[in-house]
Simulated assay, not measured.
Amino acid sequence: MKQLFMGILLVMALAVSSSPVHAAAKPIQIKIDGVVVASDAESEIKNKRTMVPLRMISESLGAQVEWSKQGIIITKKDTQIKLRPDSDSVTTNGKTLLLDAAPYIKNGRTMVPLRFFSETFGCGVDYKDAVAAVDCGALVIRDTEIETMRHEYHMTMGGVVRQMEGNALNAAIYDAFIEHKGGSVEAPADYSWMYTIDVLGSYYKAGQYDFLDADGNSVKQYDIYSLIKAFPAELLEGRPEVLLHDVTDNKWYLFSDKGKEIISEMIDTADHYGFLQVISNTVA
Rank of each mutant, 00 (worst) to 15 (best):
T92K: 13
R84K: 15
P103G: 09
R109Q: 14
V35A: 04
S43D: 08
T91E: 10
E44R: 13
K95G: 00
R115H: 01
V52G: 08
C123S: 11
S60A: 10
D126G: 02
Y104C: 07
P113H: 05
T75H: 08
I57E: 05
T91M: 07
T79M: 12
F116G: 01
S89Q: 13
T110M: 08
T91A: 03
G108T: 08
G122W: 04
S60G: 12
V90K: 01
N47P: 00
E44H: 01
L98M: 08
L54V: 02
T79R: 12
T96E: 11
D100Y: 02
A41K: 13
I72H: 04
D129A: 15
W67Q: 10
A38S: 12
G124S: 14
I105M: 11
D126Q: 15
G124Q: 09
G62D: 01
F116R: 02
I45R: 10
E119K: 03
R49E: 07
D88G: 13
R84Q: 13
T110P: 07
V52F: 07
L61K: 03
E119C: 01
I105G: 04
I57D: 07
V35C: 02
E42T: 10
L98S: 12
T110A: 10
M51V: 09
P85R: 06
N107G: 00
T75F: 01
T79E: 09
S89W: 05
M51N: 09
R55Q: 05
T91I: 10
K48F: 09
R49W: 00
G34S: 08
V35Y: 03
R84H: 11
K106H: 12
R109H: 14
L114W: 08
F116H: 02
F121E: 02
S43N: 07
G34E: 08
T50E: 03
V112D: 09
R84V: 04
V90I: 15
Y104V: 07
E44P: 00
E119W: 01
S89K: 14
I45L: 15
G71R: 06
M56I: 03
W67M: 10
I81G: 02
S60V: 00
K76N: 08
Q64E: 15
K82Y: 06
V36S: 14
V37G: 05
I72A: 06
S39Q: 09
P113L: 05
V65H: 03
T92H: 00
N107F: 03
I72L: 06
L54Q: 07
I74R: 03
Y127D: 06
S43K: 03
N47F: 08
F121D: 03
C123N: 02
E44Y: 06
K48V: 04
K106A: 13
W67L: 13
G108Q: 10
F117M: 11
Q64V: 09
L98K: 14
P103L: 05
D129Y: 11
L54R: 05
E66I: 08
A38F: 01
N47D: 15
D86E: 13
T75Q: 15
Y104R: 12
K48E: 14
F121W: 13
